[in-house]
């Protein structure tokens, strides 16, 4: 249920219920379940990319090929920022469950900022690598995988901004009704997990 306590249902002249609170309150709220199914499907999209990458790596002589080395320090810092943001966003979720909208807004704003810093760092890295995606198959993989993940980070930031925008209306979110907040958090954790695998594949594995 959407958690609304206002029941506007009335009965018409012959006693039948003619109006209910809202259309979506006719059945339970299954959006969280839908999101989880969607993310399971999404993970196979990344799964396909990861598998392709590993096949290329397995059949290549040197990995990464010459002239396409990657940095390590900046992405490592970026990784720390992104992973900590998962804890930050969880604070926001805890806040809304205690009916603390102000706290939720603060933590979600902070997470969005950390996401933006991550994206900024990613763009900075792109600009300083000195090769494009058409150099060899490694550079193609590198840009496509990080870019595709970056797109997901960007969508996550938009979701957080959406939550912030909606939460300006009093009582739009409260301790009983915050599916949108929760969905944003789950999505963000997903983006985070994907990055951990990506970081392992693109940065750690290339050092070995």
């Amino acid at each position: 249920m959407q958690g609304s306590t206002i029941d506007t249902a009335t009965t018409n002249y012959n006693g039948a219920v003619v109006s209910e609170t809202a259309n979506e309150s006719e059945h339970g709220d299954y959006r969280l379940l839908a999101l989880i199914i969607f993310l399971a499907s999404e993970s196979l999209m990344f799964g396909g990319l990861f598998a392709a990458y590993l096949i290329y790596r397995g059949s290549a002589g040197a990995w990464p090929p010459e002239e396409t080395e990657v940095e390590f320090l900046l992405p490592a810092i970026n990784t720390v920022i992104l992973i900590s943001s998962s804890f930050v966003i969880h604070r926001g979720d805890v806040a809304i469950k205690n009916n603390n909208v102000g706290g939720m807004r603060l933590w979600y704003g902070l997470t969005a900022l950390m996401g933006a810093i991550f994206l900024g760092g990613q763009v900075y890295e792109y600009l300083n690598l000195g090769y494009g995606l058409d150099k060899n198959v490694f550079s193609s993989c590198f840009y496509l995988m990080t870019g595709f993940h970056g797109l997901h980070v960007f969508v996550g930031i938009l979701l957080m901004l959406g939550v912030l925008w909606r939460s300006r209306r009093p009582n739009h979110y409260n301790e009983a009704k915050h599916t949108g907040v929760e969905m944003t958090e789950i999505y963000w954790h997903f983006v985070d997990i994907i990055w951990i695998v990506l970081f392992g594949l693109l940065y750690v594995l290339t050092l070995l």
Binding site: I37, A40, S41, E42, L44, M45, G47, G48
Partner: peptide, 8 residues
């Protein structure tokens, strides 16, 4: 759900 994303 499991196969379409891979084609995509």
């Amino acid at each position: 759900l499991f196969s379409t994303p891979v084609l995509a």
